[in-house]
Design a protein around this nucleic acid. Structure first.
Length: 822
DNA sequence: GGGCGGTTATA
DNA sequence: GTATAACCGCCCG
């Protein structure tokens, strides 16, 4: 055993014990044999057994009760799976292995015989014994090899055979899972740096069911039905039409909402009972399914009816999928993902599997366990209906059960319930429309920019190599580190969290004042970022059918209540640098239309004014002053007209710092001043704006006593670390406590504005569309004929989305492209 | 291919 | 000092 492997064994054993998993260590026998013995013993006692291993030898143990689980692909192999993979039955695996040999296990095998030949022989002759009885029928060199190996094959078979009859001193009870030793496990995971597992560990289920040894069968047997006949479907449709609300889910061909097609749909009306209607499964021997188009036509009135209420998990996706088949989903009453998010936005994930575990204590069938994952993953249409049905029907059933639990919890918090019903639920359809609308992209312009940037990047690369005196990969921080700090001996100004000398932007900027190479690296980094992330990537993400870019907005990701955007992220399109801004020129309006960009001016500071009710701040906004200038005048004690650009810049940093819950340290870094100086600025600020000081103190206090903070509309953000002993954790929670009400209230307000704008657009059928949201900005594509009227309406709707004690000012720009509209 | 670290784009 | 998403390099199995 290599030394670096040897040292891992003991920590691994400790981890396993702390996890409550029984650990068996038995000298003098093969681990495979121990596994085999226990598996057989459990199977004989009537259990279903799953052996988790990548070892193909174990395939010889597979039978009706024993399966192999491959944790790399999250798939399980049964008898049919063994035949599919090896071409022989489980009971032939020993002979199969003996024939092909295995260098790792020192099984010699027959020369020139590989998997194909072995499977072919065994199919024909059944066993090695019978094969040898007919050995003279095998022609050629390979036949000679076989006949020469007769004696060796006896040994090979012994070596390949897993001993299942060892006398082991273990009872099945010894295999039961024990309780997790949370304290010990936390200690080990921290010490070993398993940060992701630490997070998982902290998300203990709300419902603590007695530990289910996977050996014990579940008592509740759900009634899941595959709907294959018209009669079955009619019965279900009738029930759905009568139901006050039903759970609904789709299975599709793709995760890409614009191209996904329906493979099947599932429904549930009562707990424990659900139907899966397969519609487009496609594999050899697939049974006859109901016709997809006809069935969807039959379902259309129900799905489009606002009176028939639906609930689901992430219904925005199902809404898109149905739209791909010409159905406009209406009557969205509940979404378990959003209920979970509103109840606790700091939970890291709101997917159904985790929710089921947390709220119901149920382990659901994982998607990957029916489709596999990675390269081996198959589409849902390729999944046999017998396997698809329990998975898909369970989705609808569990969603329904989750819904009941979540509603019960939401009903205990009037404000959260209102936020959920009146804001998040109606927003689903609005976001779906924005996503579907998409944005038009000038790909020719980006192609030109790409060529120009390529030249510049190559030149910068050459320049940097010259300065370094050797070629190196400018994209590798590790190599840059070596060049700057090892070879050129530049001073180390900052270290990464891992203790390596940092090469990030702030460091290179500082170094660039005295040395040439850091500047070249900075320029290279900024240009290659623009090229790879935006200029080259965006054109590839244009939808083939619509010719537009369709982002995904995530409604249950950001803890503060903000949306996030991905694939592509349209909320971080460059604007600050000259070259970056050019990318915005490629976001265009079609002929006859203009882009209208409307953003809230200083919304978070205005919210701070409102929440703190500070007289000075309220006055600044009510009088329509330049707030940074006003702050500068107050803090630096000069007349407003004497405020220089430099003073204004400092005041702006202070204002932003306040929103982020700053410390003097952070402000000092931002402004390049000493900590003492920064502290005097902050002291002066709080002296001039005492209401703000008071608000910050009381917010921190409130967070400490109740464990969460709220936005103006009652959205909650929990702060479990607010009373932590660890100062870093506690201070971080304090900064979040300060920031979340402001960032979150801004998010609530723009969501309200989005509902209002959508209401206006859909009710008037105006020739205008909402196409993007960037936290404090909404972008519209508006027909020139209705431009002026639309601008006025947008301004009115956004300004009145909330009533604060200061005006909500909206700045609006218009242009043929997004850059011009700013 | 997956996970993670380092870095950088936005509000 | 807040909140995100995504890229590349590197390491691992």
């Amino acid at each position: 055993m290599p030394d670096d492997l040897r040292v891992q064994i003991q920590p691994l054993h400790e981890l396993i014990r702390a996890m409550g998993l029984p650990l068996i260590s038995h000298d003098g026998v093969e681990a495979d044999d121990v596994l085999g013995c226990l598996a057989i013993k459990a199977a004989q006692a009537g259990f279903q057994v799953v052996i988790s291993t990548g070892d193909k030898d174990m395939a010889q143990l597979v039978n009706e009760q024993i399966m192999l689980e491959n944790t790399m692909s999250d798939t399980r192999m049964d008898v049919a799976g063994v035949v599919a993979k090896f071409g022989v039955k489980p009971e032939q695996i020993i002979d199969y292995l003996a024939l092909i040999g295995d260098s790792v296990d020192n099984i010699p095998g027959v020369p020139k015989v590989g998997p194909k030949t072995a499977a072919k022989w065994l199919e024909q002759y059944g066993t090695i014994d019978n094969l040898l009885a007919h050995a003279n029928e095998i022609k050629g060199k390979i036949g000679d090899n076989l006949r020469a190996s007769i004696e060796q094959l006896v040994l090979s078979r012994q070596l390949a055979t897993i001993q299942v009859d060892l006398a082991l001193p273990y009872a099945l009870d010894d295999l039961k899972k024990q309780a997790i030793d949370t304290a010990r496990l936390t200690e080990l995971l921290t010490q070993l740096g398993f940060s992701s597992w630490l997070k998982t560990l902290n998300q203990q289920p709300l419902v603590t069911t007695p530990v289910q040894a996977s050996l014990v069968e579940d008592s509740l047997i759900p009634d899941y039905e595959a709907v294959l006949t018209q009669q079955q479907f009619d019965t279900w449709l009738h029930e759905l039409m009568q139901a006050p609300v039903f759970a609904f889910d789709t299975e599709t061909t793709s995760l890409d909402y614009m191209t996904a097609e329906i493979v099947g749909v599932s429904f549930a009306v009562t707990s424990g009972k659900a139907a899966y209607v397969p519609l487009a499964h496609d594999y050899p021997g697939v049974p006859e399914q109901l016709n997809r188009d006809q069935l969807l036509t039959a379902l259309k009135p129900l799905l489009e009816s606002p009176e028939h209420l639906k609930l689901g998990q992430n219904l925005k996706y199902d809404s898109h999928v149905l739209a791909n088949h010409g159905i406009q989903l209406r009557g969205i009453a509940h979404d378990t993902m959003l209920a979970s998010y509103v109840l606790n936005s700091t939970a890291s994930r709101h997917n159904m599997d985790d929710l089921a575990k947390y709220y119901l204590g149920i382990t659901t069938i994982a998607y990957e366990s029916v489709t596999g994952k990675g390269v081996k993953q198959i589409g849902f249409a390729d999944v046999p209906i017998e396997q698809a049905t329990p998975y898909a029907a369970e989705d609808a059933d569990i969603t329904l059960r989750l819904h009941r639990v979540l509603q019960q919890k939401l009903s205990q918090h009037a404000k959260l319930h209102q936020l959920y019903t009146e804001l998040e639920i109606p927003l689903i359809s609005v976001l779906a429309r924005i996503e579907r609308n998409g944005v038009l992209l000038d790909t020719d312009m980006l192609a030109k920019q790409s060529l120009e940037l390529s030249d510049q990047i190559i030149a910068l690369e050459r320049h940097a190599h010259d300065l370094a005196g050797q070629p190196f990969n400018l994209g590798s921080p590790k190599q840059i580190q070596d060049i700057l700090y090892e070879q050129q001996k530049l001073p180390v100004l900052k270290k990464t969290p891992k203790g390596q000398p940092s090469t990030d932007e702030s460091v290179l900027q500082e170094l660039a004042l005295s040395y040439p190479l850091p500047k070249a690296i900075l320029d290279y980094r900024s240009l290659s970022k623009l090229k790879s992330t935006y200029i080259d990537k965006l054109p590839q993400q244009v939808d083939a059918k619509t010719g537009r870019i369709h982002t995904s907005y995530h409604q249950a990701v950001a803890a503060t209540g903000r949306l996030s955007s991905s694939d592509p992220n349209l909320q971080n399109i460059p604007i600050r640098s000259e070259e970056g801004r050019k990318i915005r020129q490629a976001f265009i309006a079609p002929a006859g239309y203009q882009l209208v960009a409307a953003d809230y001016s200083q919304i978070e500071l205005r919210i701070m004014a409102h929440l703190s009710a500070d007289a000075g701040l309220l006055h600044a906004f009510s009088a329509g002053l330049d707030v940074h200038k006003a702050t500068a005048a107050e803090v630096f004690g000069v007349e407003p007209e004497r405020v220089t650009q430099d003073l204004r810049r400092s005041a702006k940093a202070i204002n932003f710092g306040l929103i982020y819950g700053m410390s003097s340290f952070g402000l000092a870094q931002q402004l390049g001043i000493t900590r003492a100086q920064a502290q005097t600025y902050i002291d002066m600020y709080f002296d001039r704006y005492p209401g703000v000081k008071q608000y910050m103190d009381s917010t921190r206090e409130l967070a400490r006593t109740q464990g969460y903070v709220e936005t103006l509309f009652g959205r909650r953000l929990y702060l479990p670390d607010i009373n932590a002993k660890n100062a870093a954790l506690r201070q971080y929670a304090e900064r979040t406590a300060i920031n979340a009400p402001m960032q979150g209230t801004a998010a609530d307000i723009i969501k309200r504005a989005m509902l209002a704008c959508d209401q206006w657009l859909t009710s008037t059928q105006s020739d205008a569309k909402m196409i993007m949201q960037v936290h404090d900005e909404l972008v519209f594509e508006v027909a020139e004929s209705v431009l002026d009227k639309s601008i006025a309406t947008i301004r009115e709707l956004m300004s009145s989305a909330a009533v604060l004690s200061v005006p909500l000012v909206v700045d609006i720009g218009v242009g043929a492209n997004w850059e011009q509209a700013h």
